[in-house]
Write a protein that binds this DNA or RNA. Structure first.
Lengths: 127, 127, 127, 127
DNA sequence: GTGGTCTAGACCACT
DNA sequence: GTGGTCTAGACCACA
Protein backbone atom coordinates (compact mmCIF):
# COMPACT_ATOMS: atom_id res chain seq x y z
CA UNK A 1 0.00 0.00 0.00
CA UNK A 2 2.54 2.54 1.16
CA UNK A 3 5.32 2.89 3.66
CA UNK A 4 6.30 5.47 6.17
CA UNK A 5 9.72 6.90 6.75
CA UNK A 6 10.48 6.95 10.45
CA UNK A 7 13.56 9.03 9.83
CA UNK A 8 11.64 11.81 8.15
CA UNK A 9 11.10 15.12 9.94
CA UNK A 10 7.49 14.91 8.91
CA UNK A 11 5.44 13.35 11.73
CA UNK A 12 4.31 9.79 11.11
CA UNK A 13 0.64 10.65 11.50
CA UNK A 14 1.00 13.35 8.87
CA UNK A 15 2.70 10.94 6.51
CA UNK A 16 -0.23 8.57 6.89
CA UNK A 17 -2.67 11.39 6.19
CA UNK A 18 -0.85 12.47 3.05
CA UNK A 19 -0.48 8.95 1.75
CA UNK A 20 -4.18 8.30 2.10
CA UNK A 21 -5.05 11.61 0.48
CA UNK A 22 -2.84 10.55 -2.40
CA UNK A 23 -4.59 7.18 -2.75
CA UNK A 24 -8.04 8.71 -2.52
CA UNK A 25 -7.54 11.71 -4.79
CA UNK A 26 -5.71 9.64 -7.42
CA UNK A 27 -8.60 7.20 -7.48
CA UNK A 28 -6.76 4.15 -6.20
CA UNK A 29 -9.21 4.03 -3.32
CA UNK A 30 -12.80 4.68 -4.29
CA UNK A 31 -15.83 5.99 -2.40
CA UNK A 32 -17.37 3.48 -0.04
CA UNK A 33 -14.28 1.32 0.05
CA UNK A 34 -13.26 0.11 3.47
CA UNK A 35 -10.11 1.56 4.92
CA UNK A 36 -7.90 -0.87 6.88
CA UNK A 37 -8.81 -0.86 10.57
CA UNK A 38 -6.76 1.20 12.94
CA UNK A 39 -5.25 -1.88 14.48
CA UNK A 40 -4.47 -3.56 11.18
CA UNK A 41 -2.89 -0.44 9.76
CA UNK A 42 -0.83 -0.01 12.91
CA UNK A 43 0.41 -3.58 12.59
CA UNK A 44 1.26 -3.17 8.90
CA UNK A 45 3.21 0.02 9.43
CA UNK A 46 4.54 -1.13 12.80
CA UNK A 47 3.46 2.06 14.49
CA UNK A 48 1.27 2.66 17.50
CA UNK A 49 -2.51 2.38 16.96
CA UNK A 50 -2.96 5.81 18.52
CA UNK A 51 -0.83 7.30 15.79
CA UNK A 52 -2.96 5.73 13.08
CA UNK A 53 -6.11 6.84 14.81
CA UNK A 54 -4.89 10.40 14.97
CA UNK A 55 -4.31 10.28 11.23
CA UNK A 56 -7.77 8.84 10.59
CA UNK A 57 -9.38 11.53 12.74
CA UNK A 58 -7.63 14.19 10.67
CA UNK A 59 -8.75 12.58 7.43
CA UNK A 60 -12.29 12.44 8.74
CA UNK A 61 -12.31 16.09 9.76
CA UNK A 62 -11.08 17.03 6.31
CA UNK A 63 -13.80 14.97 4.70
CA UNK A 64 -11.76 12.22 3.06
CA UNK A 65 -13.14 9.33 5.07
CA UNK A 66 -16.00 8.67 7.45
CA UNK A 67 -16.41 6.40 10.41
CA UNK A 68 -19.20 4.10 11.49
CA UNK A 69 -18.63 2.92 15.04
CA UNK A 70 -18.22 -0.81 15.27
CA UNK A 71 -18.28 -1.26 11.52
CA UNK A 72 -15.14 0.47 10.43
CA UNK A 73 -13.86 3.37 8.42
CA UNK A 74 -14.71 4.08 4.79
CA UNK A 75 -13.68 6.33 1.93
CA UNK A 76 -16.00 9.31 1.57
CA UNK A 77 -17.53 10.29 -1.75
CA UNK A 78 -15.21 12.78 -3.50
CA UNK A 79 -18.13 15.17 -3.97
CA UNK A 80 -18.22 15.82 -0.28
CA UNK A 81 -14.55 16.78 -0.35
CA UNK A 82 -15.55 20.19 -1.57
CA UNK A 83 -12.66 22.59 -1.69
CA UNK A 84 -13.30 25.42 0.75
CA UNK A 85 -12.10 28.81 -0.50
CA UNK A 86 -10.09 29.20 2.67
CA UNK A 87 -8.38 25.87 2.09
CA UNK A 88 -7.37 26.95 -1.38
CA UNK A 89 -6.07 30.26 -0.10
CA UNK A 90 -4.10 28.36 2.53
CA UNK A 91 -2.58 26.10 -0.10
CA UNK A 92 -1.76 29.06 -2.36
CA UNK A 93 -0.04 30.68 0.54
CA UNK A 94 2.10 27.62 1.13
CA UNK A 95 3.08 27.47 -2.52
CA UNK A 96 4.05 31.16 -2.34
CA UNK A 97 6.20 30.43 0.70
CA UNK A 98 7.92 27.52 -0.95
CA UNK A 99 8.62 29.49 -4.10
CA UNK A 100 10.16 32.20 -1.98
CA UNK A 101 12.69 29.69 -0.74
CA UNK A 102 13.86 29.18 -4.31
CA UNK A 103 14.06 32.95 -4.74
CA UNK A 104 16.16 33.33 -1.60
CA UNK A 105 18.70 30.91 -3.02
CA UNK A 106 19.39 33.26 -5.88
CA UNK A 107 17.88 31.02 -8.50
CA UNK A 108 16.75 32.74 -11.69
CA UNK A 109 13.08 32.94 -12.48
CA UNK A 110 13.56 30.82 -15.57
CA UNK A 111 15.24 28.08 -13.59
CA UNK A 112 12.51 28.22 -10.98
CA UNK A 113 9.85 27.85 -13.64
CA UNK A 114 11.67 24.85 -15.06
CA UNK A 115 11.94 23.22 -11.64
CA UNK A 116 8.26 23.76 -10.90
CA UNK A 117 7.26 22.40 -14.29
CA UNK A 118 9.21 19.23 -13.49
CA UNK A 119 7.45 18.87 -10.17
CA UNK A 120 4.04 19.34 -11.75
CA UNK A 121 4.81 16.72 -14.36
CA UNK A 122 5.89 14.22 -11.72
CA UNK A 123 2.20 13.44 -11.30
CA UNK A 124 1.55 11.76 -14.61
CA UNK A 125 -2.08 11.09 -13.74
CA UNK A 126 -3.00 14.67 -12.92
CA UNK A 127 -5.78 15.66 -15.28
CA UNK B 1 10.72 47.00 8.64
CA UNK B 2 8.56 43.91 9.01
CA UNK B 3 6.32 42.30 11.54
CA UNK B 4 5.94 38.85 12.94
CA UNK B 5 2.72 36.99 13.35
CA UNK B 6 2.53 35.41 16.77
CA UNK B 7 -0.54 33.45 15.74
CA UNK B 8 1.27 31.73 12.90
CA UNK B 9 2.28 28.10 13.15
CA UNK B 10 5.63 29.06 11.66
CA UNK B 11 8.18 29.48 14.46
CA UNK B 12 9.01 33.11 15.21
CA UNK B 13 12.73 32.57 14.61
CA UNK B 14 11.96 31.20 11.17
CA UNK B 15 9.75 34.18 10.41
CA UNK B 16 12.62 36.51 11.27
CA UNK B 17 15.01 34.55 9.07
CA UNK B 18 12.65 34.59 6.11
CA UNK B 19 11.87 38.27 6.44
CA UNK B 20 15.56 39.15 6.43
CA UNK B 21 16.22 36.92 3.45
CA UNK B 22 13.43 38.73 1.64
CA UNK B 23 14.89 42.15 2.44
CA UNK B 24 18.38 41.12 1.46
CA UNK B 25 17.63 39.20 -1.71
CA UNK B 26 15.17 41.82 -2.96
CA UNK B 27 17.79 44.51 -2.45
CA UNK B 28 16.06 46.53 0.25
CA UNK B 29 19.02 45.84 2.49
CA UNK B 30 22.34 46.11 0.74
CA UNK B 31 25.76 44.55 1.34
CA UNK B 32 27.61 46.14 4.22
CA UNK B 33 24.51 47.66 5.76
CA UNK B 34 24.24 47.29 9.51
CA UNK B 35 21.67 44.92 10.86
CA UNK B 36 19.85 46.01 14.06
CA UNK B 37 21.36 44.54 17.19
CA UNK B 38 19.79 41.50 18.78
CA UNK B 39 18.50 43.54 21.68
CA UNK B 40 17.07 46.29 19.53
CA UNK B 41 15.41 43.82 17.20
CA UNK B 42 13.96 41.92 20.14
CA UNK B 43 12.54 45.14 21.53
CA UNK B 44 11.04 46.21 18.19
CA UNK B 45 9.37 42.89 17.59
CA UNK B 46 8.60 42.36 21.28
CA UNK B 47 9.98 38.87 21.19
CA UNK B 48 12.54 37.04 23.29
CA UNK B 49 16.16 38.07 22.52
CA UNK B 50 17.12 34.41 22.39
CA UNK B 51 14.75 34.02 19.49
CA UNK B 52 16.37 36.84 17.54
CA UNK B 53 19.79 35.46 18.43
CA UNK B 54 18.84 32.12 16.95
CA UNK B 55 17.58 33.73 13.76
CA UNK B 56 20.80 35.71 13.31
CA UNK B 57 22.86 32.57 13.83
CA UNK B 58 20.91 30.82 11.10
CA UNK B 59 21.29 33.76 8.72
CA UNK B 60 25.01 33.82 9.37
CA UNK B 61 25.39 30.09 8.74
CA UNK B 62 23.58 30.46 5.44
CA UNK B 63 25.75 33.38 4.42
CA UNK B 64 23.26 36.22 4.44
CA UNK B 65 24.91 38.24 7.19
CA UNK B 66 28.23 38.28 9.04
CA UNK B 67 29.28 39.38 12.47
CA UNK B 68 32.25 41.51 13.35
CA UNK B 69 33.06 41.18 17.01
CA UNK B 70 32.44 44.39 18.89
CA UNK B 71 31.20 46.27 15.80
CA UNK B 72 27.95 44.54 15.08
CA UNK B 73 26.26 42.47 12.41
CA UNK B 74 26.19 43.37 8.72
CA UNK B 75 24.60 42.29 5.48
CA UNK B 76 26.77 40.03 3.38
CA UNK B 77 27.12 40.47 -0.36
CA UNK B 78 24.29 38.53 -2.01
CA UNK B 79 26.79 36.86 -4.33
CA UNK B 80 28.27 35.05 -1.38
CA UNK B 81 24.96 33.36 -0.79
CA UNK B 82 25.96 30.31 -2.69
CA UNK B 83 23.15 27.88 -3.24
CA UNK B 84 24.09 24.56 -1.69
CA UNK B 85 22.77 21.53 -3.57
CA UNK B 86 21.13 20.34 -0.38
CA UNK B 87 19.41 23.68 0.11
CA UNK B 88 18.01 23.52 -3.40
CA UNK B 89 16.81 19.98 -2.87
CA UNK B 90 15.16 21.07 0.36
CA UNK B 91 13.42 23.94 -1.38
CA UNK B 92 12.30 21.69 -4.23
CA UNK B 93 10.89 19.32 -1.71
CA UNK B 94 8.88 22.09 -0.05
CA UNK B 95 7.51 23.22 -3.38
CA UNK B 96 6.52 19.64 -4.14
CA UNK B 97 4.70 19.40 -0.80
CA UNK B 98 2.84 22.64 -1.36
CA UNK B 99 1.80 21.62 -4.85
CA UNK B 100 0.47 18.35 -3.43
CA UNK B 101 -1.89 20.33 -1.24
CA UNK B 102 -3.40 21.91 -4.33
CA UNK B 103 -3.73 18.47 -5.87
CA UNK B 104 -5.44 17.08 -2.77
CA UNK B 105 -8.04 19.82 -3.01
CA UNK B 106 -9.12 18.44 -6.34
CA UNK B 107 -7.82 21.35 -8.37
CA UNK B 108 -7.13 20.65 -12.04
CA UNK B 109 -3.58 20.74 -13.31
CA UNK B 110 -4.39 23.65 -15.57
CA UNK B 111 -5.74 25.70 -12.69
CA UNK B 112 -2.73 24.83 -10.59
CA UNK B 113 -0.39 25.99 -13.34
CA UNK B 114 -2.29 29.25 -13.61
CA UNK B 115 -2.15 29.79 -9.86
CA UNK B 116 1.57 29.13 -9.74
CA UNK B 117 2.20 31.44 -12.66
CA UNK B 118 0.40 34.19 -10.80
CA UNK B 119 2.49 33.62 -7.73
CA UNK B 120 5.72 33.70 -9.73
CA UNK B 121 4.69 36.95 -11.38
CA UNK B 122 3.92 38.55 -8.03
CA UNK B 123 7.64 39.19 -7.78
CA UNK B 124 7.96 41.77 -10.51
CA UNK B 125 11.65 42.24 -9.79
CA UNK B 126 12.61 38.60 -10.22
CA UNK B 127 15.04 38.46 -13.07
CA UNK C 1 -40.67 2.77 6.19
CA UNK C 2 -37.48 4.57 7.12
CA UNK C 3 -33.79 4.42 6.39
CA UNK C 4 -30.67 4.53 8.45
CA UNK C 5 -27.64 6.64 7.77
CA UNK C 6 -24.48 4.57 8.09
CA UNK C 7 -22.37 7.72 7.91
CA UNK C 8 -24.01 9.23 10.95
CA UNK C 9 -22.20 9.41 14.27
CA UNK C 10 -25.39 8.28 15.93
CA UNK C 11 -25.25 4.51 16.58
CA UNK C 12 -27.38 2.48 14.18
CA UNK C 13 -29.36 0.88 17.01
CA UNK C 14 -30.26 4.31 18.33
CA UNK C 15 -31.36 5.42 14.89
CA UNK C 16 -33.71 2.45 14.70
CA UNK C 17 -35.12 3.21 18.14
CA UNK C 18 -35.75 6.86 17.31
CA UNK C 19 -37.35 6.08 13.99
CA UNK C 20 -39.79 3.66 15.60
CA UNK C 21 -40.61 6.13 18.34
CA UNK C 22 -41.37 8.68 15.67
CA UNK C 23 -43.67 6.31 13.80
CA UNK C 24 -45.48 5.26 16.94
CA UNK C 25 -45.87 8.61 18.63
CA UNK C 26 -46.94 10.32 15.41
CA UNK C 27 -49.61 7.66 14.89
CA UNK C 28 -48.27 6.12 11.69
CA UNK C 29 -48.00 2.83 13.54
CA UNK C 30 -50.98 2.11 15.77
CA UNK C 31 -51.42 0.03 18.92
CA UNK C 32 -51.59 -3.70 18.24
CA UNK C 33 -49.94 -3.40 14.85
CA UNK C 34 -47.28 -5.99 14.12
CA UNK C 35 -43.70 -4.85 14.01
CA UNK C 36 -41.48 -6.49 11.36
CA UNK C 37 -39.44 -9.38 12.69
CA UNK C 38 -35.83 -8.84 13.67
CA UNK C 39 -34.62 -10.80 10.69
CA UNK C 40 -36.84 -9.03 8.21
CA UNK C 41 -35.93 -5.64 9.58
CA UNK C 42 -32.24 -6.49 9.47
CA UNK C 43 -32.59 -7.56 5.85
CA UNK C 44 -34.51 -4.42 4.88
CA UNK C 45 -32.02 -2.08 6.49
CA UNK C 46 -29.04 -4.28 5.58
CA UNK C 47 -27.70 -4.12 9.10
CA UNK C 48 -26.64 -6.75 11.58
CA UNK C 49 -29.61 -8.61 13.20
CA UNK C 50 -27.98 -8.14 16.58
CA UNK C 51 -28.29 -4.41 16.08
CA UNK C 52 -32.02 -4.64 15.37
CA UNK C 53 -32.41 -6.98 18.32
CA UNK C 54 -30.82 -4.42 20.58
CA UNK C 55 -33.08 -1.67 19.30
CA UNK C 56 -36.21 -3.77 19.90
CA UNK C 57 -35.06 -4.57 23.41
CA UNK C 58 -34.69 -0.87 24.14
CA UNK C 59 -38.11 -0.08 22.69
CA UNK C 60 -39.64 -2.81 24.78
CA UNK C 61 -37.99 -1.57 27.97
CA UNK C 62 -39.30 1.92 27.31
CA UNK C 63 -42.82 0.61 26.68
CA UNK C 64 -43.22 1.35 23.00
CA UNK C 65 -43.59 -2.25 21.87
CA UNK C 66 -44.23 -5.65 23.47
CA UNK C 67 -43.33 -9.17 22.53
CA UNK C 68 -45.63 -12.15 22.55
CA UNK C 69 -43.62 -15.36 22.53
CA UNK C 70 -44.07 -17.23 19.31
CA UNK C 71 -46.38 -14.64 17.79
CA UNK C 72 -44.11 -11.71 17.25
CA UNK C 73 -43.66 -8.13 18.34
CA UNK C 74 -46.42 -5.50 18.44
CA UNK C 75 -46.94 -1.81 18.99
CA UNK C 76 -47.98 -0.91 22.52
CA UNK C 77 -50.70 1.62 23.22
CA UNK C 78 -49.05 5.07 23.30
CA UNK C 79 -50.78 5.80 26.59
CA UNK C 80 -48.69 3.14 28.25
CA UNK C 81 -45.58 5.09 27.36
CA UNK C 82 -45.42 6.77 30.69
CA UNK C 83 -42.84 9.45 30.90
CA UNK C 84 -40.38 8.58 33.63
CA UNK C 85 -39.00 11.58 35.51
CA UNK C 86 -35.51 10.44 34.72
CA UNK C 87 -36.32 10.23 31.02
CA UNK C 88 -37.64 13.76 31.07
CA UNK C 89 -34.58 15.00 32.90
CA UNK C 90 -32.42 13.23 30.33
CA UNK C 91 -34.31 14.86 27.47
CA UNK C 92 -34.13 18.28 29.13
CA UNK C 93 -30.42 17.81 29.49
CA UNK C 94 -30.05 17.05 25.81
CA UNK C 95 -32.03 20.11 24.84
CA UNK C 96 -29.83 22.20 27.12
CA UNK C 97 -26.74 20.79 25.43
CA UNK C 98 -28.07 21.49 21.97
CA UNK C 99 -29.04 25.04 22.87
CA UNK C 100 -25.53 25.59 24.21
CA UNK C 101 -24.16 24.83 20.79
CA UNK C 102 -26.22 27.67 19.34
CA UNK C 103 -24.94 29.92 22.10
CA UNK C 104 -21.33 28.96 21.41
CA UNK C 105 -21.77 29.99 17.80
CA UNK C 106 -22.44 33.52 18.92
CA UNK C 107 -26.08 33.54 17.97
CA UNK C 108 -28.27 36.09 19.75
CA UNK C 109 -30.91 34.89 22.16
CA UNK C 110 -33.63 36.33 19.97
CA UNK C 111 -32.41 34.44 16.94
CA UNK C 112 -32.14 31.26 18.97
CA UNK C 113 -35.73 31.63 20.14
CA UNK C 114 -36.87 32.13 16.59
CA UNK C 115 -34.97 29.06 15.41
CA UNK C 116 -36.40 26.91 18.16
CA UNK C 117 -39.92 28.16 17.47
CA UNK C 118 -39.49 27.11 13.85
CA UNK C 119 -38.35 23.67 14.88
CA UNK C 120 -41.28 23.24 17.24
CA UNK C 121 -43.72 24.26 14.54
CA UNK C 122 -42.24 21.77 12.10
CA UNK C 123 -44.39 19.19 13.83
CA UNK C 124 -47.78 20.41 12.71
CA UNK C 125 -49.52 17.55 14.46
CA UNK C 126 -48.09 18.25 17.90
CA UNK C 127 -51.01 19.04 20.15
CA UNK D 1 -12.25 28.04 37.05
CA UNK D 2 -14.35 24.98 36.45
CA UNK D 3 -14.44 21.34 37.33
CA UNK D 4 -14.92 18.17 35.42
CA UNK D 5 -17.17 15.31 36.29
CA UNK D 6 -15.28 12.04 35.88
CA UNK D 7 -18.50 10.11 36.36
CA UNK D 8 -20.21 11.80 33.44
CA UNK D 9 -20.82 9.91 30.22
CA UNK D 10 -19.48 12.90 28.40
CA UNK D 11 -15.76 12.42 27.69
CA UNK D 12 -13.43 14.51 29.82
CA UNK D 13 -11.84 16.19 26.82
CA UNK D 14 -15.27 17.25 25.59
CA UNK D 15 -16.13 18.66 29.00
CA UNK D 16 -12.97 20.74 28.90
CA UNK D 17 -13.84 21.99 25.43
CA UNK D 18 -17.36 22.99 26.44
CA UNK D 19 -16.26 24.67 29.63
CA UNK D 20 -13.74 26.80 27.76
CA UNK D 21 -16.27 27.69 25.08
CA UNK D 22 -18.55 28.82 27.88
CA UNK D 23 -15.85 30.99 29.44
CA UNK D 24 -14.85 32.50 26.12
CA UNK D 25 -18.29 33.14 24.67
CA UNK D 26 -19.61 34.55 27.93
CA UNK D 27 -16.71 36.98 28.03
CA UNK D 28 -15.05 35.69 31.19
CA UNK D 29 -11.95 35.02 29.12
CA UNK D 30 -11.09 37.74 26.64
CA UNK D 31 -9.15 37.80 23.38
CA UNK D 32 -5.40 37.59 23.81
CA UNK D 33 -5.65 36.24 27.33
CA UNK D 34 -3.35 33.37 28.11
CA UNK D 35 -4.93 29.99 28.60
CA UNK D 36 -3.39 27.84 31.34
CA UNK D 37 -0.66 25.61 29.96
CA UNK D 38 -1.48 22.04 29.10
CA UNK D 39 0.52 20.76 32.03
CA UNK D 40 -0.90 23.23 34.52
CA UNK D 41 -4.47 22.54 33.43
CA UNK D 42 -3.82 18.82 33.67
CA UNK D 43 -2.53 19.25 37.20
CA UNK D 44 -5.48 21.42 38.24
CA UNK D 45 -8.04 19.01 36.91
CA UNK D 46 -5.97 15.97 37.84
CA UNK D 47 -6.27 14.50 34.39
CA UNK D 48 -3.67 13.40 31.92
CA UNK D 49 -1.89 16.15 29.93
CA UNK D 50 -2.75 14.34 26.71
CA UNK D 51 -6.41 14.74 27.50
CA UNK D 52 -6.06 18.47 27.99
CA UNK D 53 -4.03 18.77 24.82
CA UNK D 54 -6.70 16.98 22.85
CA UNK D 55 -9.24 19.48 24.13
CA UNK D 56 -6.99 22.42 23.24
CA UNK D 57 -6.46 21.06 19.73
CA UNK D 58 -10.22 20.87 19.26
CA UNK D 59 -10.69 24.40 20.52
CA UNK D 60 -7.98 25.58 18.17
CA UNK D 61 -9.53 23.87 15.15
CA UNK D 62 -12.84 25.48 15.98
CA UNK D 63 -11.21 28.88 16.23
CA UNK D 64 -11.60 29.62 19.92
CA UNK D 65 -7.92 29.67 20.82
CA UNK D 66 -4.59 29.76 19.03
CA UNK D 67 -1.21 28.38 19.84
CA UNK D 68 2.26 29.83 19.65
CA UNK D 69 4.89 27.14 20.09
CA UNK D 70 7.05 27.70 23.10
CA UNK D 71 5.01 30.69 24.26
CA UNK D 72 1.71 29.16 25.12
CA UNK D 73 -1.94 29.15 24.15
CA UNK D 74 -4.15 32.21 23.90
CA UNK D 75 -7.79 33.16 23.47
CA UNK D 76 -8.62 34.05 19.87
CA UNK D 77 -10.45 37.20 18.93
CA UNK D 78 -14.20 36.48 18.89
CA UNK D 79 -14.44 37.96 15.39
CA UNK D 80 -12.51 35.06 14.00
CA UNK D 81 -15.01 32.65 15.53
CA UNK D 82 -17.28 33.28 12.61
CA UNK D 83 -20.26 31.00 12.57
CA UNK D 84 -20.13 28.83 9.48
CA UNK D 85 -23.55 28.16 7.92
CA UNK D 86 -22.86 24.45 8.15
CA UNK D 87 -22.09 24.74 11.85
CA UNK D 88 -25.39 26.51 12.43
CA UNK D 89 -27.27 23.89 10.44
CA UNK D 90 -25.53 21.20 12.50
CA UNK D 91 -26.55 22.89 15.73
CA UNK D 92 -30.14 23.34 14.51
CA UNK D 93 -30.23 19.68 13.70
CA UNK D 94 -29.12 18.77 17.20
CA UNK D 95 -31.77 20.98 18.72
CA UNK D 96 -34.36 19.32 16.50
CA UNK D 97 -33.19 15.91 17.67
CA UNK D 98 -33.35 16.88 21.30
CA UNK D 99 -36.82 18.36 20.95
CA UNK D 100 -37.95 15.11 19.35
CA UNK D 101 -36.99 13.31 22.53
CA UNK D 102 -39.47 15.45 24.44
CA UNK D 103 -42.10 14.68 21.81
CA UNK D 104 -41.49 10.96 22.10
CA UNK D 105 -42.20 11.15 25.81
CA UNK D 106 -45.75 12.27 25.10
CA UNK D 107 -45.21 15.75 26.46
CA UNK D 108 -47.61 18.40 25.19
CA UNK D 109 -46.30 21.13 22.96
CA UNK D 110 -47.16 23.74 25.56
CA UNK D 111 -45.18 21.94 28.22
CA UNK D 112 -42.26 21.56 25.84
CA UNK D 113 -42.29 25.27 25.09
CA UNK D 114 -42.29 26.05 28.78
CA UNK D 115 -39.37 23.69 29.41
CA UNK D 116 -37.34 25.19 26.59
CA UNK D 117 -38.07 28.71 27.78
CA UNK D 118 -36.72 27.78 31.19
CA UNK D 119 -33.57 26.40 29.65
CA UNK D 120 -33.05 29.52 27.55
CA UNK D 121 -33.47 31.72 30.60
CA UNK D 122 -30.91 29.71 32.56
CA UNK D 123 -28.30 31.80 30.78
CA UNK D 124 -29.02 35.13 32.40
CA UNK D 125 -26.20 36.82 30.48
CA UNK D 126 -27.36 35.82 27.02
CA UNK D 127 -27.95 39.00 25.14
C1' DG E 1 -14.15 -7.37 15.52
C1' DT E 2 -14.56 -2.00 15.15
C1' DG E 3 -13.44 2.91 16.65
C1' DG E 4 -13.09 6.20 20.94
C1' DT E 5 -11.14 7.64 25.25
C1' DC E 6 -7.83 7.81 28.77
C1' DT E 7 -3.46 7.19 31.43
C1' DA E 8 1.57 7.09 31.99
C1' DG E 9 5.70 8.35 30.55
C1' DA E 10 9.31 9.69 27.03
C1' DC E 11 11.45 12.71 23.55
C1' DC E 12 11.67 16.77 20.59
C1' DA E 13 11.63 21.78 18.95
C1' DC E 14 10.72 26.53 20.16
C1' DT E 15 11.14 30.57 23.49
C1' DG F 1 9.08 26.70 30.56
C1' DT F 2 5.83 25.92 26.31
C1' DG F 3 3.22 22.82 22.90
C1' DG F 4 3.67 18.52 19.65
C1' DT F 5 4.45 13.73 18.77
C1' DC F 6 4.86 9.06 19.85
C1' DT F 7 4.65 4.59 22.40
C1' DA F 8 2.48 1.15 25.47
C1' DG F 9 -1.26 -0.62 27.38
C1' DA F 10 -6.09 -0.46 29.39
C1' DC F 11 -11.14 0.10 29.21
C1' DC F 12 -15.52 1.14 26.95
C1' DA F 13 -19.56 1.07 23.55
C1' DC F 14 -21.15 -0.52 19.11
C1' DA F 15 -22.03 -4.23 15.57
Amino acid sequence: MFEIDVKSRKPISEQIVDNFKELIVSGVMVAGEKVPSVREMAARLTVNPNTVQKAYRTLEQQGYIYTSAGRGTFVESPDSVEAQPQDIEQARSEVREAISKLYYLGISKKEAEKTIKELLDERGDWK
